[in-house]
């Protein structure tokens, strides 16, 4: 049974269809890539799934729940987490707090307990702290715990964004151009890293990427978007030889 399923997902900005009739079903533990030229509607798909935009038409079901119309925070608490194309960390907060923020929905103490630091507050905070430190340690960020996130080098900021997303304990992780701004060697490391977090955190991953090397290397299945339309879907090898994709996508980059 698919983790995430979209039916006829459509979104208009004014009169312009940014995404039209987008159908996708991701099985548990799958790693699916979405590719397509700039402005093809890839990030819009992410924004629709995570509730930033409300779909004009169509449905999205996640673990059997319809999520169109839910707020981003509700969707995230159901188990979908994401990163951003241009890094959006909480810049003036420490690395630790960036990760702790993302525990918001998991906390089981109420406002009164928070204001008085009583009741379940102490134990809950302890476990959040432990989970955050564990997460930072397993992503090799532990030596930056107390650094302001804006002071991290670029690559580590990308990794912290993933750590922050993982802190929400997602089933499905959406990565928006995780390799943006990386050199080939770094991309190689990133590919291993993505495979590793998928195993370690038992994730289903949907990613948007421009670097064909990465997409072809790790994705099990690809969707190709152009002007909001899905023009091809299949295994990386099939996509590579699909004439329409070559024309629209690869043709454009050359």
């Amino acid at each position: 049974m698919p983790v995430l399923e979209t039916h006829h997902l459509t979104h208009h900005f004014g009169g312009l269809a940014a995404v039209s009739d987008f159908n996708l079903a991701i099985e548990p533990h799958e790693l699916v890539g979405v590719i397509g030229p700039n402005g093809a509607g890839k990030t819009t798909v992410f924004n629709l799934i995570t509730g930033v935009y409300r779909a004009t038409d169509g449905s999205i079901s996640f673990a059997d729940t319809e999520i169109v119309g839910k707020t981003p925070s509700e969707i995230t608490s159901l188990g979908i987490a994401r990163t951003f194309q241009n890094i959006r960390l909480f810049r003036e907060l420490t690395v630790l707090d960036n990760v702790r923020v993302a525990h918001y929905a998991q906390v089981r103490y109420n406002a009164i307990e928070a204001l008085l630091h009583l009741g379940r507050f102490q134990t809950e905070e302890k476990s959040i702290l432990e989970h955050s430190l564990d997460l930072l340690a397993s992503l090799k960020l532990e030596s930056y715990t107390d650094e302001l996130s804006k002071n991290l080098p670029y690559g580590l900021q990308r990794r912290l964004e993933i750590a922050r997303a993982l802190a929400t304990r997602p089933q499905l992780l959406l990565l928006d151009e995780p390799a943006a701004g990386m050199n080939p060697q770094e991309v190689g490391q990133l590919m291993e890293f993505i495979q590793w977090i998928r195993q370690e955190f038992k994730l289903t991953i949907l990613l948007i990427e421009h670097q064909m090397h990465l997409v072809m290397g790790i994705c099990e299945r690809l969707l190709v978007l152009d002007f909001g339309e899905t023009i091809a879907e299949g295994k990386p090898r099939e996509i590579q030889n699909n004439p329409r994709v070559l024309e629209v996508y690869l043709g454009e980059t050359q």
Binding site: S73, R91, E92, L93, A102, Y104, L115
Partner: peptide, 30 residues
């Protein structure tokens, strides 16, 4: 009370609104 609020889950939510409200929302902050 305000210190307690700031150093709690809700307080971190408050800070996330200052830093980037949309990102906060997407990191499960109500």
């Amino acid at each position: 009370i305000i210190r307690n609020l700031v150093y709690s889950n809700f307080g971190r939510g408050v800070l996330s609104i200052r830093e980037d409200e949309v990102a906060g929302d997407l990191m499960s902050v109500n």
